[in-house]
Amino acid sequence: MKLPAGTRDWLPAELQRKHAVEAALRAVFAARDYAEVQTPHFERFDVLASGLGAESAAAAFLFADRSGTQLALRPEMTTPIARLVSSRMRGAALPLRLCYLQPAFRYDEPQEGRMREFTAAGLELIGADGLEADAESLFSALEALDAVGLREARIDINHVAIVESVLDGFAFEARVRAACHEAIATRNLVSLRATLDAAGRASAAPVLVELAMARGGTDVLDTAARLCGSETGRAGLERLRALLARAQDLGYAGRVGIDLALLRDIAYYTGLVFEGYVEQAGFPICGGGRYDDLLPRFGFAAGAVGWSLAVERVLIALERRP
């Protein structure tokens, strides 16, 4: 009578709490005029893999149909929706506002907050660039966290161009650059220093360590402005500055912070990235960002920004509340 690792049953009282969270999320999606869509639980692996980065693709459950075609349970919802929009909804008026609340599956080591079957909820704003679209996505995530009852949740934001710009400034060889990027993203200062030492570039350590440790408010943006050489990096900083100001105006001051080392482990992000968290949980509650290169991979020239959360993580955070 054993269940497979990373799966669970929902008894009536538990399911009731889950449904309450889902209803609160759907209300936020509806108030923002996002339309819910559904895609198959499994798809052709080659199609999903062309959108997912290597890490997400590696986490997919794989199986084959009788003709030997490789199929995968979707590990997340953004790629299937990008595929859907790029094919069946090509003619739709942009911007397009879509949301989902569906099971997804990841072949990870199961642990708290990381189940192999989980309920993904989120929204995607497709075909809209610029500050307004980024703000809509970011603040809808805060609204969703409020709506499910996590009013103390905070969101850290970053822009992927900032780290790129600082790394560009050092003109590392590709292998060193990739190792530095990885060390900053995981905030592994020991490996960052070791990489630079081994490459004979120890003089870069103070700047990159400062970048990896930088977290806070507008003060952090001033630090970053000093480190950031390129036009795209500075544009990224300005985007973050504008979002912080917007947070202030909307009454979210103190709930949005800057973390210059926040680089989500999904490869498709191209601009703003963000992650929400609460004190009582050691894992992020929600995450998202801008992914302008994903739909073009499916032959549809449109940028997009979105976020998602796992309903199960919200439930753990709610249960753990002091």
Partner: peptide, 17 residues
């Protein structure tokens, strides 16, 4: 090594640093 939880790094930033 001194290691931290990546999310606690943010929620307890001042104390960790």
């Amino acid at each position: 090594r001194f290691v931290v939880n990546p999310v606690r790094f943010r929620s307890a930033y001042g104390a960790i640093v």
